[in-house]
Design a protein around this nucleic acid. Sequence first.
DNA 1: TCTGGGGTCCTAGGACCC
DNA 2: TCTGGGGTCCTAGGACCC
Length: 451
Amino acid sequence: MRPEPSILHLDLDAFFAAVEQRDKPSLRGKPVVVGGISGRGVVSTASYEARKFGVHSAQPMHEARRLCPNAAFLSGRFGAYRVASRQVMAVLRDLSPLVEPMSLDEAFVDLAAGGRTDFSTETLTTMGNQLRERVSEVTGGLTASVGVGSSKFIAKLASEQAKPDGLVVVPVGTEAGRIAFLDVRAIPGVGPATAERLQRLGVRTVTDLRQATANELRRELGQSTAEWLTALAYARDDRGVSSSREAKSISMEDTFATDYTKLEDLAPITARDAVLVAGRLRKAGFFARTITVKLKLSDFAIHTRSRTLLGAVDSDETIASVAVLLLREQSHLLSQGIRLLGVGVSGFTTEAQEALFEIGAARADESRVDLPAATVRHGWTGYRPGDDVTHDDFGPGWVWGTGLDLVTVRFETATTSPGPIRTLSVDDPQLRPTLVQAPDEDSAGPGWLEE
DNA sequence: TCTGGGGTCCTAGGACCC
DNA sequence: TCTGGGGTCCTAGGACCC
C-alpha cells in the first residue's frame, strides 16, 4: 500500500463486443455475443445489451443462444482487437513509462513512475477523465472504466466499481472501510473453490475474513493463501507494477466437436499442435526443456503428462515426437473419449542444446510421426460470422452467416450507416476475406481471452 | 447442443545431493 | 546400530485469471 493513490487500473468495457459494434453500425445498441460459435464454444464477451438477457462470459454458447436468440453471434477478430489494444496501451504509456498489460483490454499504470507528484482526488479525477476521453478518441469510440488507488488491489476494485464507462478514485485512508462489506468472491484470486472453503468457516464477506482466526484460515487454505487473503482483507497489498514479464510457457489446445477415442486420430493432431507450438517458440526466440501433453476426457477430468529433457530444444521434429510419446503413455485413457488435447512447452532458455535430446532411440522411433507437410497455420478455414470481407462490386462488409455453400454479408463499415445484406456463393470470385492483421502478427493463436 | 483457450502460480511427494 | 535436515529438480494436479 502506498502513501498516495498512485496506481491506476484501466479496463475496456465489453471490449470485444464493443469493437464489433464500432465496426458494424447495424449492431450498435443491439445484443452482440463474441465467442466460440461451434457447438462446444463458450461466450468470450457479451455486449451490455446482451447481458440484460443473462448472457455472460464463460457461459456455454448454446445457453447464450437460448437466452438471447436475436443477438449477433460472432467468432471474434483478434487482429482488430490487438490494434485497438495497442492504441490504448500507447495512451497509457503517455501517462507513465511503467505500464503492466494484464490482457488485451486491461492494464495497470504506476503513476508515480511517470513523475507525477500531485495525487489529490481532484487532480486524479481530471486526469482519469481525460484519459478515458483520449482512449475513446484513439480507438474510435471505445469506452473504458478506470480505477485509481494506493495498490493494485484497490485500483482494480475501483475500476470494477466504475463500470461501465466510469471513474473511481479511492482516497488514501478509506480503503479498508470501503471493502469491508464486499463478498470475498470480489477479491481477485478467490474463485469458486476458495469461496467454498471460506464458507465452511462461515466467511462470506471481507469483515468475516478479518474475524477468522489465522489458524483456521491456514488449515482450510494453506499457509500462503491464508496470508495473502488476510493481508488483502485489511487492504494491505505491496505488489509493484511491472512492465516486463517474460513468457514462461507456450501452449495450444483444441476442443473437438466430438470426442476422439483412437490413437490413430489423436497422434496426427498432437503432432500438428506440437509443430504449431514449436513455431511460436522459435518466433519468441526461446528453446524449451519441458514438453507437456494435456488430455481432457469426456467427463472433464484432466490428465497431463510432461517430460523434461536434458537440453533445450525448438525443432518441430523433437517437440512433436516427444509430444506423441507422451500421448502414447496415456493411451489407456483414450477409450473414455478425449474431448480436448493440448500440447505445451515450458522451461525456456535462449540457447539450444538439441544434442542432448535423449529419449531412447527405440521409443523415439516408435513415436515418429509424419509432420504436416506445409504448416496449417495460414490455412483458410472458411468464412466465420463476423469476419471482414471485401466484394469487388459491393465493397467492404462482414459475414453475417454461412451455410449451404452460401455466405450472407452485410456491406457496411465503421464509418458508413447500416448497410445492405446480400447472400452470395461461397465461391463468388469477387468475394474475399479482408486482411486486417499487420504483417508481423501471429495468426496462429487468437487466444480466447475473455474480459 | 452441456461447460474455450492461453496463460500463471501453488502444492505435494519423490528423487537426489550435500 | 541408529537417526537428520535442507535444497533443488521433476511430475501431476488444481485453482484462478482474462
